[in-house]
Design a protein around this nucleic acid. Structure first.
Lengths: 227, 227
DNA sequence: ACTCTCTTCAAAGAAGTTCTTGAATGGTGC
DNA sequence: GCACCATTCAAGAACTTCTTTGAAGAGAGT
């Protein structure tokens, strides 16, 4: 094999990894899997496609080495192969948001205007948690809270927030967080809380970034799903 | 636009960036452009394709916001849009090498066995340069040296190394560097130097990583091409 | 062994990608 | 204004990807 062929083959292999991310549905899958492991049916629900098609995309991600599987009973769980995949996904999002002007329009179309929804940085939140003058709520689906959450956070999936509202003290600021900067769950929670007269902000990014920054987290055994 | 459509559109936009890297030739272009700006004809030469096809790929990269252009006389120069693109490219390579077992075979097919070619880390090299007990040679094409190089390095493109050999003191270790961990120029240089009885190693990665680590660099005005 | 559930595979049409060839464009410098 | 140059565009052939549909496979539990 000549130098040219060998170099092409090597760079084609790098391109294979990029190709596995080069589809919006697979990108959504990576974003969900950054929260923790999930099985096919849940993932199909998340991306709004058939189980067959989701399985097809998951196989593409597995072939590229981005996700790995684990069998438990007759369920197959998918998870990211390593934290480096989160770094890659973060870098991709960063480059996209830095250089793709029209992306801002897409973000706004999806998450709505964020100007008034003050964001809290990871560092500030960590300090406030240490000081104990803030309530942190995890508004992701309960399964993701179980797989891992910010230490001290309480799980209130956004659709249960109205019901649980009275259990939140009215005189303490609430910080909501979810999957990351392009997740709308925390925005919805903050809007709802503010409509009810609460002081609320959202964490600027989400759980994967918090975890990657080695800030304190907790996980629960799957049997301990909080009610 | 519904939530689903808006989310799909947003993640499709992220996927567009990945798609622009999802081709081996475009990946090679990014790797070369990480060294500094170049024009189409040079880039076509680098990837071994026609100018028309290279232009086509460059437009794909530009559309994704990864490269930008600059006109000088009747030449158009391409360069990476920002350092974040280098971070993305590095993350992609890292994930590929961490999870793609067969990649090692491809690397070996391209760069050859590296076991005996001791590598020097950035940190060690920076210390050795400060101590002044090492000669650093930049074996990339002269144009890339001009665009930027490790401070104190001397430009000896690998094809001129034999000629320049006598000008290198025989009793000092030589460290060669080139474009990055998957570049073969420094390996060739080290092999040649060792065959001639010199003590030589290669920098583990290359110029873009050195620069990104904010270690000392130098650039030359284009008129000062070293002979 | 049988059935159940979850997951993957196969086929096929529509849509997209890659590379080649040859022509067109649009600044530059005379 | 004109010729020249580097670069881009256009068209087309070969190939790959995406999604849907329906069927097949593989463990787990009875």
């Amino acid at each position: 094999m000549g130098k040219r062929e060998a170099k092409d083959a090597l760079f084609d292999a790098f391109a294979e990894v990029a190709k596995s991310l080069a589809n919006g549905r697979r990108a959504e899958l990576i974003d969900v899997l950054a929260q923790g492991e999930r099985h096919v049916e849940e993932l199909a629900e998340e991306i709004g496609h058939s189980v067959a098609n989701t399985s097809f995309h998951l196989r593409a991600l597995a072939a590229a080495g981005l996700v790995v599987t684990r069998r438990d009973k007759n369920r197959i769980f998918y998870r990211l192969a390593s934290d480096r995949v989160i770094e890659l996904w973060t870098a991709l999002r960063d480059v996209a948001s830095a250089h793709h002007a029209e992306l801002e329009e897409l973000v706004e179309a999806y998450v709505g205007r964020r100007d008034q929804l003050d964001e809290v940085s990871r560092i500030e939140l960590a300090e406030r948690i240490a000081a104990g003058d803030v309530i942190v709520i995890d508004v992701r689906p309960a399964a993701e809270y179980v797989a891992g959450h910010i230490a001290g956070a309480r799980s209130i999936p956004v659709e249960r927030l109205t019901k649980e509202l009275r259990s939140l003290p009215a005189d303490v600021e609430v910080v909501a967080y979810c999957r990351g900067p392009y997740c709308v769950l925390a925005d919805e929670a903050v809007r709802l809380l503010r409509r009810r007269g609460r002081t609320a902000r959202r964490l600027a990014d989400g759980y994967p970034e918090w975890r990657h920054a080695r800030l304190p987290i907790q996980t629960l055994a799957t049997s301990e799903v909080p009610s």
